[in-house]
Design a protein around this nucleic acid. Structure first.
Lengths: 190, 190
DNA sequence: ATAAATCATGAACCATCGTTCAGGTTAGGA
DNA sequence: TCCTAACCTGAACGATGGTTCATGATTTAT
């Protein structure tokens, strides 16, 4: 949380705004009005615009947070792998975790669209780098089909079902997609 | 195309409107304005509203067409299966075909949302019934994992990537998801 | 305590977009 | 040909939602 020399009340308002925006967007989608966000944050619209010159900036900030969280998850996984963890278990846990958060994440990602796609690219590279480590470990442990790449895993994480899909279907989905990555023992893809 | 006793020019306008709407929605998303659709169709907005009392009706009409196309595909597949075709090949072809059209379809489906969900339900039942036949044939031919159900296939068809996913990734995706359905030979899921 | 900079307020502005309607036009049968 | 129902036109309306700005309130350093 970078308090860039903000006044005490300004900093407080800023975090309130971000919290309110996160909650409302998660609940009602990206189309929530700025007025609603401001009211939920206990602040006037003008204040909101002082901190975020445009709605896109507010959304970009939230998306940025989510991306950081995800990168932290990825780093944690590869650390555990370096410590000798099971690549299979880690992959299952990773996909499950991301799927659970996918409801909110998908909304934000959809909203961000190509708005932040340019600034996303370098972060995406960081993510793919982490995934590459994980996939490499998976191959070393013969837990993945031979042709599975880091991009494949990234693709799957990107295409996880959002909140429009009811929960049992979402769980089943995780089961199914993992099947396309994890080899029983041989490692030869069909 | 049910010309319900329309005047000649009215019928012409109606098809022009539907064509224009399909094209614009496919190209720019569901958020295209009614004015744009009208202009593209060479018609005034009022005319558009004479044929479709609300934007939702226009979208519902287009979605209906797409659904009919898809049902026709499904029926064709199960007919070919009854004639002794390979369930595996048919499934691959089906998913590939739907994936190719997914760009536009996803847009429409997203737009339809719960707007038409009620009227979709019975059509969805028809679709699932057809899928059930296909999956049954697949099991008879030992081409699928034992636990794969018609709902699984429906889930996959629903969650196919849209136009936001570039084409090579989309093809790879089809390869991957099919792997989670099609058994090599044994039929026992991991 | 006082000043100056920083920050907050919220009514108003403006652009967009779905929708309507009064009046003009056209098709097609008698 | 002429009449009338069916149809078309497009300016205008209203709701929505992002954005601005003149004015007033707080914080903080001196």
């Amino acid at each position: 949380m970078a308090d860039r020399g903000l006044r005490a009340d300004a900093a407080r308002n800023r975090t309130n705004i971000v919290h309110a925006a996160r909650a409302l967007i998660a609940a009602h989608g990206v189309d929530v009005g700025m007025d609603d966000i401001a009211r939920e944050a206990g602040v006037a619209v003008g204040t909101l615009y002082r901190h975020f010159p445009a709605k896109a900036d507010l959304i970009a900030a939230i998306v940025g947070e989510r991306i950081e969280e995800m990168l932290a998850d990825l780093d944690a996984v590869s650390a555990r792998l370096d410590a000798g963890g099971s690549a299979r278990d880690e992959l299952v846990a990773l996909v499950t975790t991301v799927a659970a958060r996918a409801g909110e994440d998908r909304l934000l990602k959809a909203a961000a669209g190509d708005l932040v796609r340019t600034s996303l690219n370098d972060v995406e590279h960081r993510a793919v780098a982490a995934l590459r480590q994980i996939v490499a470990a998976g191959h070393r442990q013969k837990a993945l089909y031979r042709d599975v790449s880091a991009d494949d895993v990234a693709l799957i994480l990107t295409l996880l079902p959002g909140e429009e899909t009811p929960d049992p279907a979402r769980r089943r989905w995780v089961q199914l997609v993992l099947r396309s990555l994890l080899a029983d023992d041989a490692g030869e893809p069909p």
